[in-house]
Simulated assay, not measured.
Amino acid sequence: MSLVKNVHSLMKDMVEMKESMSTSNKRLNDAEKEISSLKNEVQLLKTENQKLKEEAVKFHEELKTADNKLNNTITSIKADVEQSQKSQLKLAAAVSSLEVFRMNMSLMNSCASKTSVGFTVGVTSSSSSWNGGILVYPHVVTNIGNGYSPSTGKFTAPTDGKYVFFITVNAYGSNDIYLDIVHNGSRKVRTMSHSSGSYQTGTNMAVLPLYKGDSVWVVYYSGKGYYAYDVPITTFSGFLLF
């Protein structure tokens, strides 16, 4: 009886052991499945990580290429800026040269217009008794700029500037004659032909600053008469110096 009881107890233990082993096997299978799933996830993570590495390498290469392009662009822009600066300097130099040329041309034109003023006039008939007023020179040798009037004996400045005037008078016989160069009514210089001998010659010159419209003429001061030839020897001349 005791043996049977022990056998029953042993069988019961074996059944429990089988159930425990079955449960353990089930747990083991579940664990293996979970491990397999984890392995799959790890593999997926490895694959994704590899893709990320490849994308990172690709991005790095693209970034490096973009950096090279940016550096090339910056270098090109610097070269363009330097070329532009050189071009601007050349343009500025050209503009300066043109301005200097324009100023020189303006100065040359101004000088050219001013230097085209001059006259020489004289008398071709002698007078033994002339003794007063303006000496009118009716014979015009040159009258560049038409500043001299043979009807009044006066020169009128057509432009501002510094003018040179020169007079020559030949006395009639043994007479004395004194003449003055007059600027707007003001006597500036005097010439004389003295009676130390026959047909003496007197000369003088004046440099006068004139404004446009100023007048210069020759006027009697003292003595009388003047001598002349058909080619003038008693003359009045003037020209624009600058």
Rank of each mutant, 00 (worst) to 15 (best):
M1A: 05
S2W: 10
L3I: 09
K5Q: 15
K5L: 13
K5P: 00
N6V: 06
S9K: 07
M11V: 08
M11N: 03
M14Y: 14
E16L: 12
E19M: 08
S20V: 04
M21F: 01
S24P: 00
S24N: 02
R27P: 00
R27D: 11
D30K: 14
D30S: 14
I35L: 14
S36R: 11
L38Y: 02
K39A: 13
N40P: 01
T47A: 07
E48V: 06
E55F: 04
V57P: 00
A66Q: 08
N68S: 07
L70K: 06
T73C: 02
K78C: 01
K78A: 06
V81K: 07
Q83M: 09
Q85V: 15
L89Q: 15
K90D: 12
L91N: 10
V95G: 00
S96G: 12
S97L: 15
M103Y: 04
N104H: 04
M105S: 10
L107P: 00
M108L: 12
S110R: 15
C111R: 12
S113D: 15
T120Q: 14
T120W: 04
S129E: 12
S129G: 05
W130I: 05
L135Q: 10
Y137L: 15
P138Q: 14
P138E: 15
I144P: 00
N146L: 11
S149R: 09
S151D: 11
K154G: 02
G161L: 07
G161I: 09
G161S: 08
K162I: 13
K162L: 15
K162N: 12
I167C: 03
A171D: 02
S174I: 12
N175A: 06
N175M: 03
L179Q: 06
G185W: 09
S186D: 13
R187E: 08
K188N: 03
V189T: 11
R190G: 03
S195G: 13
S196M: 05
T201I: 13
T203G: 02
A206M: 02
V207P: 00
L208I: 14
L208H: 02
Y211C: 04
K212G: 04
V219R: 07
K224A: 05
A228H: 02
D230Y: 08
V231G: 01
V231S: 09
P232I: 12
L240F: 00
F242E: 14
F242M: 14
